[in-house]
Nucleic acid binder design. Sequence first.
DNA 1: AAAAAAATACCGAAAACTTGGTATTTTTAA
DNA 2: TTAAAAATACCAAGTTTTCGGTATTTTTTT
Lengths: 200, 200
Amino acid sequence: MKHTIAIVDDHSLFADGLERILQEHKNFEIVAKCTSAEDFEVTLNHKIPQLVLLDIRMKGQNGLDFCKAVKQKFPSIKVIIISMFEASEVIEKVRLAGADGYLHKSTDAELMRSTILDVLNGHQVFLMAAEVKEYPEKNALSKREREILGLIKKGMSTQDISKTLFISQYTVDTHKRNMMNKLGVNSQRELIVYAFENMI
Amino acid sequence: MKHTIAIVDDHSLFADGLERILQEHKNFEIVAKCTSAEDFEVTLNHKIPQLVLLDIRMKGQNGLDFCKAVKQKFPSIKVIIISMFEASEVIEKVRLAGADGYLHKSTDAELMRSTILDVLNGHQVFLMAAEVKEYPEKNALSKREREILGLIKKGMSTQDISKTLFISQYTVDTHKRNMMNKLGVNSQRELIVYAFENMI
DNA sequence: AAAAAAATACCGAAAACTTGGTATTTTTAA
DNA sequence: TTAAAAATACCAAGTTTTCGGTATTTTTTT
């Protein structure tokens, strides 16, 4: 019996390619190819795939939030997140979102197929790109620091952040300083740049 | 006779997909699939494809710079840039880099094939995503403004920029203010965010 | 050749950020 | 159950940005 798979990615070209890669394998059947989370929700009303390949960054909705929502409503659907992010921190987020697997866009076709089969067999598979450089432990950002970096990435000022998190500006300031030290940058500007290049 | 095509993209999964999409067409032959600009340069030493599909954003080298280099050494090679950027400003950069075509990752397989054929026939085809919203003319950034925004995106301070461009800090400040007015943002922070979300 | 747009430059005051400190409380790990 | 790590908070001085202006020169367009 064929495994039913859905692809959710707003880049049709990428989705089209994935479809063809999977079609080469007789055990896979692509039952839906959606370009948005909304699209996929509609699909779910009449067809429940066994597994969904989900792009982490789509316009409109964040893939991780959507993953959570899907897993809550349909715990039986296996979800594999696909993204171009290489930071190891991403894995944790993917796990927390309830995904069963993670694939980097630099993995190849064969590895993707074997990962899908593993996940369908009930395993959890989180694959990073081969060349991921782990940060030395002492430079790892704490949870709160990452949270603040996420707000910085949205363009928020120190004041904005302090109001959002209900903490003092001084505290935000301290967190920023600690992050700058850990990451080896010298300004909030570079912190924003770092965030865009390393976060979801 | 088959058309020889090379694919240069550091996301193997995407490249694998493109390959399969193109293989369905009997007139195309994928002669190389490279995951970096360096890889492709090596390939060019022994095999010259008629056309190359080039990802605009690759780690290491910028796709546009690489496009220029390829076109300079091998003017006969047709280059189609593929990216996920939707801003109309990108098209101009792609043109200036000497590319023969532009495809957004949200275009579908069929459109890609027809674009490739058009380009091979000597036409220039620059396709944007359907839902691109053009900026009102009065808000278009000038050349210099875009140049400065590019430096801002690298995390440079006003002072850094003034030194890089050999102009006064006051001038950089004025450019920044004008951009902020045009783009409707209120701080350098948001300017950086805008840059990351809208520039190459 | 005249008008419009772009690029250049300056001043000053207010706001925001950076940096070198210090220090308490809460949470997590050994 | 301690010790370590994380999160919290404050002060002061110095630096950088922001924003209110204004204004000249260069380039482009009409």
